[in-house]
C-alpha cells in the first residue's frame, strides 16, 4: 500500500515537472495579458474569430526580426479570414533587456504591427503552451467554447531568404483548417532563440 502511494505521488510529480507543453489536439487555455496599447487582452474578446495564430516572439531575436514582415503579411491575410495573429513576448527582460514592455511598444510602432503584441510577464503562458524559442507558432481553432491546438512549429522553411521559401508551413496549416481539413504537417521544427525564462 505504501509503495502504491509512493508510486502515485511520484507519477504525479513527474508528470507535472516534466510537462512538455501542448501537442496538437490538446485543449489550449485562454489568457489575459497586457497589450502594447495598455489594455489587457483575452482570446475570449474575439467573438468573430474562427481561431488564432499565436506567435511567441520578441524584439531582440534575429529570427523574430527576420520574420516580422512575414508575420504582418500573414496577419493581414488571415485576420480577414477569421484567424488573427496574436503575438506574445515571454522573455525575461532582465536577461534580454531590449525585450522589455517599453521596447515592445517602440518595436511595434517602428514596424507598424497590425496585431496585438502581449507581454507574458510571469512567463506562465509560454510554460503552459510549451514554447521554447522565438518565433514559435501555435495555431488554435475554436470548437464551440474550446480552443484546440491544430498546428505547432515554424512559419516556413527559410528564415534567412524569404524569396527561397519552398514550404509555407503556417499558411498551409491555416488554409487546411479553413477548408475543414487537418493540417499536414501539424508539427514542424525551426532554429530560434531560446525563450529567456527566469531562473
Amino acid at each position: 500500500m505504501k509503495n502504491l502511494i509512493i508510486t502515485i505521488v511520484l507519477t504525479i510529480t513527474f508528470s507535472t515537472s516534466f510537462s512538455q507543453g501542448y501537442g496538437t489536439g490538446d485543449k489550449a487555455i485562454d489568457f489575459n495579458l497586457l497589450n502594447i496599447d495598455g489594455q489587457y487582452l483575452s482570446l475570449d474578446d474575439y467573438d468573430e474569430a474562427k481561431g488564432f495564430i499565436v506567435i511567441f516572439t520578441c524584439n531582440h531575436c534575429p529570427f523574430s526580426i527576420a520574420y516580422e514582415d512575414r508575420i504582418i503579411a500573414i496577419d493581414k491575410k488571415y485576420k480577414a479570414l477569421g484567424y488573427p495573429v496574436i503575438a506574445i513576448n515571454s522573455n525575461d527582460s532582465t536577461i534580454a533587456e531590449t525585450d522589455s514592455y517599453s521596447h515592445m511598444k517602440v518595436r511595434a510602432k517602428e514596424k507598424g504591427f497590425t496585431f496585438p503584441y502581449l507581454l507574458d510577464a510571469d512567463q506562465s503562458i509560454a510554460r503552459t503552451y510549451g514554447a521554447t524559442r522565438t518565433p514559435h507558432v501555435y495555431v488554435l481553432s475554436k470548437d464551440k467554447k474550446k480552443l484546440l491546438v491544430k498546428y505547432i512549429g515554424a512559419i516556413d522553411d527559410n528564415h534567412e531568404e524569404p524569396e527561397k521559401v519552398k514550404a509555407k508551413f503556417l499558411e498551409d496549416a491555416v488554409d487546411a483548417l479553413l477548408d475543414g481539413n487537418s493540417p499536414n504537417p501539424d508539427f514542424t521544427k525551426a532554429i530560434g532563440c531560446t525563450i529567456k525564462f527566469s531562473k
Binding site: T132, D157, N158, E160, K164, F169, K189, A190, I191, G192
Partner: peptide, 21 residues
C-alpha cells in the same frame, strides 16, 4: 547554413526543439 531546419534538427537529435545553445 541550411534552411531546411525542420528536416535536419531531428536528424541531429530527435528531442531537439531547435533552440540554442
Amino acid at each position: 547554413s541550411d534552411p531546411d531546419a525542420n528536416t535536419w534538427i531531428s536528424m541531429v537529435n530527435e528531442d531537439w526543439t531547435g533552440s540554442i545553445p
